[in-house]
Design a protein around this nucleic acid. Structure first.
Lengths: 140, 140
DNA sequence: CTTTGTGCAAACGATTTGCAGGATG
DNA sequence: CATCCTGCAAATCGTTTGCACAAAG
């Protein structure tokens, strides 16, 4: 996956960010994951084999990547911040049981008419969060 | 507002909760507010004139009220928990600028078809969060 | 009088920050 | 070689908890 690595390096540089091993690792890790990991999960993942990055660095890396628009935070109803390298707008499904977060394609929900909001509110973005139970938890 | 007070007392009792001055004050305060205050805001409000309730008590009162289904938590993209005595389902608008949260009536958004979700997901609830700038911040 | 709530302070978990040394462009 | 990043530890912030005392039913 040399190509992949190069692309990541290019992406980082294009945002004016220095390419450090830690920052690279955080972003690369996030890109390969489909879930929405917490800082702790990322940290464990990175340091699983060899020590790669300290906790504080993961925090600041994520902050930098967020400011650069490469990742976004997902904050649902728990006390932790999750991160997502999927920048394309999408909705979320959250399992009340296992806490997993699953993406819902943007065009899944049609017919949301923001023009009916009261005048005076300038809309930047919106998203739908669905709460429920996923099939992995719903075993009877 | 003796009637109002009586109604609050009745509501608390009907949930099997003891009526204490602190718990009453927290719930009453929340009922009169249209915004979605944080614990800190509630605490300041209550103790503005005379000391009414300690911080820990506000936390546990809110927890109790939440368990009883009288208030609900609202957690948007900040690190704090906000509370809402409006139990009727509704959506939220969040001003990126001042942080204020405004309710959006439930029937404002039609046509959200949850049946199109992939089979296996059991939906309990959902809500739309709209991000933008409110008119108070959008002064040019 | 039994049960439950309050208040304080200490504990806690997630995140931020200050600073000295190290790596990047 | 100037600038920015890392790592550590201490600090901070919101929230929870243990415990002795007080109040509610």
């Amino acid at each position: 996956m040399q190509q992949e690595a190069d692309r990541i390096v290019q992406t980082l540089k294009s945002k004016g960010l220095r390419v450090t091993p830690q920052r690279f690792a955080v972003y690369a890790n996030l890109l390969t994951r489909a879930d929405h990991p917490t800082v702790e999960q990322i940290l464990c993942d990175l340091n699983q084999n060899a020590p790669t990055s300290s906790q504080a660095t993961v925090y600041t890396s994520l902050q930098t990547l967020r400011d650069a628009g490469l990742v976004r935070e997902v904050l649902l109803d728990e006390g932790v911040c999750r991160y997502d390298a999927n920048i394309v707008p999408h909705h979320h499904f959250r399992c009340k049981c296992c806490g997993e977060i699953e993406d819902i394609a943007w065009d899944q929900f049609q017919g949301i008419d923001l023009h009916q909001l009261r005048p005076g509110l300038k809309v930047d973005s919106y998203e739908v969060t669905v709460y429920g139970v996923c099939d992995r938890c719903d075993v009877e």
